[in-house]
């Protein structure tokens, strides 16, 4: 009991610390600065794009990992989950070595299509998707694996094609997990710092997302940094509330 109280206090103390340093009267002023808006807008756009990518590319992978009959599944799963344990800065360096202008792929993209990923918002989306997608894949894979496959078999025996079964039976049954995985991935993408600053740089309006802006503002304008932190805190709370059925209402 005492240990549990201490644990709760450990989580509450930093929140209280942050909140008691907020200059509430100046908050709206700090948040209405163009720099804050740029960072917020960029963060929302990039994290939403990264989440869409995670859903589009993560769903087939999750299905394959859960149901597919593929060799070396354990290896593939470890590879996909690696970004969850890898320090994000290392992820950024790895992305650089694969996609910088001097790397084979990055050089080819630039020579052939004139696409440069480093220092671009697309690079931010890539870095965020790299660290966030595993959260989506693992959540959806778990749901698919735990699902009772008799419903799908019943549908198939009644003449539904594979795509129809997936669309009308499988997807609705795992929908809550898809949503939860997407929200988790989005929250992770929104908070991404290390891979982003390493791979995409720190350019105002183009790659300077909210966490980067908070870090930069800590030295110049602490109230600004705290105000931006509050925005991230509010967003995190919204995520928690939206997932309340899953985590908070557990009996």
């Amino acid at each position: 009991m005492a240990a549990a109280t201490l644990t709760v206090a450990f989580f509450v103390a930093p929140l209280v610390g942050l909140l008691q340093r907020v200059d509430w009267s100046g908050l709206s002023g700090e948040l209405s600065s163009p720099q804050a808006w740029d960072a917020l807008r960029l963060s929302l756009i990039c994290s939403a794009s990264a989440t869409v990518l995670a859903i589009l590319f993560g769903t087939p992978l999750a299905w394959l990992l859960a149901r597919g009959d593929l060799p070396g599944r354990a290896v593939i799963r470890s590879l996909v989950l690696l970004p969850m344990v890898l320090p994000p800065v290392v992820g950024g360096v790895a992305l650089l070595s694969a996609f910088s202008l001097r790397s084979p792929i990055g050089g080819w993209l630039n020579d052939t299509f004139g696409i440069q990923l480093t220092f671009s918002s697309a690079g931010v989306v890539m870095a965020e998707a790299f660290v966030a997608m595993p959260f989506f894949v693992i959540t959806v894979e778990g749901a698919l694996r735990g699902m009772d496959s008799r419903f799908e078999e019943a549908a198939a025996s009644l003449g539904a094609g594979r795509l129809t079964v997936f669309r009308r039976v499988t997807l609705p049954m795992v929908a809550p997990s898809v949503v939860a995985g997407a929200v988790l991935a989005w929250a992770r993408a929104l908070g991404e710092f290390g891979a982003t600053i390493t791979f995409a740089g720190n350019i105002a309006g183009r790659t300077r997302t909210l966490p980067l802006a908070v870090y930069l503002a800590l030295e110049t304008n602490q109230q600004g940094a705290i105000a931006l932190s509050i925005v991230l805190l509010v967003v995190s709370l919204v995520v928690l509330v939206s997932l309340r059925d899953r985590w908070l209402m557990r009996t």
Partner: peptide
């Protein structure tokens, strides 16, 4: 302009990155 958080990071954007 990409801003490094210290001179090491600023230099690394040229040696490692695409600055």
């Amino acid at each position: 302009v990409t801003r490094g958080q210290n001179v090491g990071a600023t230099l690394a954007a040229v040696t490692e990155g695409d600055a």
